[in-house]
Simulated assay, not measured.
Amino acid sequence: MLDSGLPQTEIAAQLNVSVSTLKKQTGSIYRKLGVGSRREALHIAHVHGLIDGIQAAQATQSGQRR
Rank of each mutant, 00 (worst) to 15 (best):
Q14G: 02
D52K: 04
R66T: 05
S20T: 14
I54A: 06
Q14W: 08
A45K: 04
Q55I: 06
K23F: 09
H46A: 09
Q64W: 10
A13M: 09
E10S: 03
R66D: 06
Q58P: 00
A56C: 05
T9V: 14
A59T: 01
H43P: 00
N16M: 11
D52T: 03
R31Y: 10
S62L: 12
A41M: 07
R31N: 12
S28Q: 15
Q61W: 05
R66I: 05
L50I: 07
K32T: 13
Q61M: 10
I29C: 03
S37I: 05
H48W: 14
V19H: 06
V17I: 15
Q64K: 08
G34L: 08
G49W: 05
E10H: 06
T9D: 14
Q55A: 10
E40K: 05
L2D: 02
I29Q: 11
Q58R: 08
D3M: 01
V35E: 04
M1N: 02
I29M: 13
L15E: 12
I11Q: 02
I44V: 15
T26G: 01
Q55H: 07
N16H: 14
M1T: 01
A57L: 12
R38C: 01
L33Y: 09
A13I: 03
G63F: 05
G36D: 09
G36I: 08
Y30C: 00
A13N: 09
E10I: 08
I44H: 12
I54C: 01
G53L: 07
L2S: 00
L6S: 03
D52C: 04
H43T: 12
G49V: 05
K32P: 01
G34T: 13
I29R: 11
H48D: 13
K32I: 08
R39F: 05
T9A: 12
A56Q: 14
I11E: 02
V35G: 04
K24V: 13
T26S: 12
A41F: 04
G63E: 06
T60W: 08
L2R: 01
A13W: 10
E10K: 06
G34A: 07
T9E: 15
G53A: 11
A13P: 01
Y30A: 03
V19G: 03
R31E: 14
G34R: 08
Q58F: 11
A56G: 01
A56E: 14
S62Q: 11
Q55L: 13
K24G: 03
T26V: 13
L22E: 09
V35C: 05
V19A: 12
E40A: 09
S62P: 00
H46M: 13
Q25S: 10
L6F: 09
G5Q: 01
R39V: 13
A59V: 04
I11D: 02
G36Q: 11
I51E: 07
S28C: 02
Q64N: 03
Q25E: 15
Q64I: 08
T21R: 12
I54M: 09
S4C: 01
Q14N: 10
G27C: 07
N16V: 14
L2H: 00
A56M: 14
L33V: 07
V17D: 07
G49D: 10
I44Y: 09
A59S: 05
